[in-house]
């Protein structure tokens, strides 16, 4: 095989490996309180949970644990109050993992719901099983 081609392939392979190894692998996660759990279907663009989570701390993060979801796109979740007013920034969800959102402006002692919107590339109706905590 051509020498230059070998060199070219080797250098591309080395570059690909080095680049992928440079990824940052740290982050911090907190503890949870008061989980709720149920299933929900994506019939509409956005769905608000019927279960509520009570706020106990001043933590700026909120957590959503997804046990099972049938979509491979990433739906988004944000905390809302009983009237649907936003109380956090949106975070994306994935199957079998816990996602953390930020800018949680919930006040201690109040109950909040979770609003989930389907991703732009979701096709049809899918199901997601999750529990969340505003902490």
């Amino acid at each position: 095989m051509n020498r230059k081609f070998k060199k070219f392939s080797l250098s591309v392979g080395a570059a690909l490996t080095v680049m992928s190894m440079v990824l940052v692998t740290y982050g911090s996660k907190g503890s949870y309180t008061n989980w709720t759990s149920y299933e929900i279907s994506f019939v509409d663009d956005a769905t608000t949970s019927s279960n509520v989570s009570r706020r106990y701390t001043d933590n700026e993060k909120f957590g959503v644990k997804v046990k099972d979801c049938t979509m491979w796109s990433s739906p988004k979740a944000k905390v809302v109050n009983s009237e649907g007013a936003s109380r956090s920034s949106a975070t994306k969800l994935k199957g079998n993992t816990t996602s953390y959102g930020k800018n949680n402006t919930c006040a201690i002692g109040y109950n909040y719901k979770l609003k989930i919107s389907s991703a732009w590339n979701q096709v049809g109706t899918d199901t997601i099983k999750y529990k969340f905590s505003v902490r």
């Binding site: 591309v12 392979g13 690909l16 490996t17 680049m19 992928s20 190894m21 990824l23 940052v24 692998t25 740290y26 982050g27 996660k29 975070t91 994306k92 994935k94 079998n96 993992t97 816990t98 996602s99 953390y100 959102g101 930020k102």
Partner: peptide
Amino acid sequence: LAVFDKYSMDNVTLLTPVIFIVFYS
């Protein structure tokens, strides 16, 4: 998005992008 998902999700490790890159390479 792995580089940012590391901060907002559990289970996102160095392995996630490495598998992708190795496979497509």
